[in-house]
């Protein structure tokens, strides 16, 4: 038990030392730059598809659920569009999308770095005078911080569009009532709040997963385990920080 607790402290320390290596000044800018371009593709562009699919269906089902369950006559039907919009903006497109991306991006990062570790590619980088942690991880962080907000915006737009499709094609809610609801009392700070959240969640996914992968010891079995740990730990920390940030920013 005591050993477990000491282990947690040890790993926290190790994580922060790792972060320090990641953000230390690059020895040469140019190789980093071409890495960033590759990461834009791997982390950013490759995630658009899944975010769009999940968002459009969730937007649709949120609208449908609200429409079916708000049957009380004193509750105005415009609340359906209003609720769907704010649910996407506040929680779904930031928290849920991050959880989904932790499964995709996080496991990908951990297994990529883990494989590089066990096949000695990381050692090879070090021999060639490269700060491997910085070279491999910093471009991923940059790509994440650039792309996650874009993915967030896409998710909000497509999610609301999914809701609108429900209104258009089914009779659960009338289209004009739905769009009127979408325009109701919009609070711009909700967007800022969500941007802050998604940036922090992206950073958590990226660095925690990289940390798991970078220090893999052993063989391919350990790479698989690291990749699972990456997803589990990122998800737990995202959910924890979601509560903390909501408390700090919205109350």
């Amino acid at each position: 038990m005591i050993k477990k607790i000491l282990d947690i402290f040890y790993n926290f320390g190790k994580y922060f030392i790792f972060l320090k290596r990641v953000v230390s000044k690059p020895e040469k800018a140019k190789p980093y730059f071409s890495q960033i371009i590759k990461e834009f593709d791997k982390i950013g562009l490759n995630s658009i598809g899944i975010v769009l699919i999940v968002s459009i269906f969730m937007g649709a089902v949120i609208t449908l659920q609200t429409a079916i369950n708000f049957i009380n006559p004193i509750v105005p039907r415009t609340l359906i569009g209003y609720g769907a919009r704010d649910m996407m903006i506040l929680e779904f497109s930031s928290t849920m999308v991050s959880l989904i991306l932790s499964g995709k991006v996080g496991s990908n990062i951990a297994s990529e770095l883990g494989t590089m570790r066990i096949t000695q590619q990381i050692d090879a980088l070090e021999i060639m005078g490269v700060n491997s942690a910085g070279y491999l991880v910093l471009p991923k962080i940059i790509a994440t911080l650039v792309f996650f907000p874009i993915l967030y915006v896409l998710s909000v737009i497509i999610g609301i569009f999914g809701g609108w499709l429900v209104a258009y094609f089914f009779d659960a809610v009338n289209v004009s009532v739905f769009t009127a609801g979408l325009k109701m009392s919009f609070i711009p700070f909700y967007i800022t709040y969500s941007f802050i959240k998604i940036l922090i969640f992206g950073f958590i996914i990226c660095t925690l997963s990289a940390f798991q992968g970078y220090y893999v010891e052993g063989g391919s079995v350990e790479v698989g385990k690291a990749s699972t740990r990456a997803v589990v730990y990122s998800s737990i920390f995202i959910l924890m920080f979601n509560v903390i940030l909501t408390q700090l920013l919205l109350t």
């Binding site: 020895e27 000695q120 050692d123 090879a124």
Partner: peptide, 27 residues
């Protein structure tokens, strides 16, 4: 120093040419 690792340790994400150029890029 030039080093050949036990499994080769070529960078998967780079072509053979990019691999070979890499030390020149860095040094």
């Amino acid at each position: 120093i030039g080093m050949v690792f036990q499994g080769g340790a070529l960078f998967d994400s780079m072509t053979v040419l990019e691999n070979t150029i890499f030390p020149l890029d860095m040094f």
